[in-house]
Simulated scan of single mutants.
Amino acid sequence: MAESLDAYIHRMMLPAPLPQGGLALALVPGAVAKIASDTGIPGWNIEATALDLGILPTRYLRNMHSITPEAQTRLLRSTVAQVGLGGLGGTIFEQLLRLGIGTLRIADGDNFEESNLNRQTLCDMDTIWRSKAQAARLAATRINPSITVDARHEFLTADTFPHFLAGCDLAIDALGGLTHRLTLQQCAAKANIPLVTGAIAGWTGYVAVIMPGQTGPAQFMGQDNGAEEKLGCPAPSVCTVATLMAAEAVRMLRGDVSPLAGKMLLMDLRQLTFETVAL
């Protein structure tokens, strides 16, 4: 009789020191990879099962005081659809990998170019001129191979958004510019899933959370990309907005209500101001 997954996990677990002191039963990344290779079960599923058994994947030990084991299990069993892998998208993608979002469905039809090196996390001297989707797949194998990544080298349209969003728990708008944001917002509403959106222009930016049927920034921001192109995209602005977006995504995936639902957070790093407005 084949060994059950629970039994295999118990056989591979080891005692590990906790950051706050003491020991816990834990599963190291190498053990997860071994079980996944032998069974064909995705790493995120193995880690979620381990958490159900009271065994902590060592990868997430430093999450545990901020994200409970129960919430971590929810993240591992979640599926997120993200559109865009540029400045915002690459930073969000890396954070979601490290946080343990089990399945990431991402799309971007662009290739990296030299001007992306100033702020795009996935762009470096090894990935320049490659497709952003390919760079994302490579990053996932380096950072967290337990995550299932469906990276698509394509520009989505009104016709392809619905299929892309189907079956997901949450959508992330990390598009460059404003042209397709309203279409994505409308398609997320039809899919009945929340949408986290954000944009930057120079040292300013915004983040918003749009629940199905709510008003979003795309309904009054228009489609003019001039502000971003004129004011530029400095890395601190990109990283700040991306981090806020990732935090809101995790908040909702673990079952909490976002304080930005139906609102927009406006930031200005030059003046160091943050202001929340109702939409």
Rank of each mutant, 00 (worst) to 15 (best):
L5P: 00
P15W: 15
A16R: 12
P19H: 13
Q20K: 11
L23Y: 15
L25S: 02
V28A: 11
P29I: 06
G30E: 08
V32Y: 03
A33S: 15
A33H: 13
I35F: 11
A36N: 08
A36T: 07
D38I: 06
G40T: 12
A48E: 01
L53C: 02
L61V: 14
H65K: 11
I67V: 12
R74M: 06
L75E: 09
L76A: 10
R77F: 14
R77I: 13
R77Q: 15
A81P: 00
L88V: 03
G90L: 00
E94T: 01
L96W: 04
L97M: 11
G100L: 08
I101R: 02
T103I: 06
L104Q: 04
A107Q: 08
D108Y: 00
D108K: 00
D108P: 00
E114Q: 11
S115W: 05
S115G: 03
L117A: 07
M125V: 01
S131A: 10
L138C: 12
A139D: 06
A140K: 07
R142F: 02
R142P: 02
S146I: 15
D150I: 01
D150A: 01
A151Q: 09
A166Q: 13
A166M: 11
G167M: 15
D173M: 03
G176S: 09
H180S: 12
R181T: 11
L184S: 04
Q185K: 07
Q185L: 09
Q185P: 03
A189K: 09
N192E: 04
I193C: 01
P194Q: 01
L195F: 07
A201K: 02
T204P: 06
T204Q: 15
G213T: 06
G213N: 09
T215P: 07
G222D: 10
G222F: 07
Q223D: 13
A227H: 08
E228T: 11
P234S: 15
P236D: 08
C239N: 05
A242S: 13
M245R: 04
A247S: 14
A249K: 00
R254C: 14
R254P: 08
K263R: 15
E275C: 10
T276K: 09
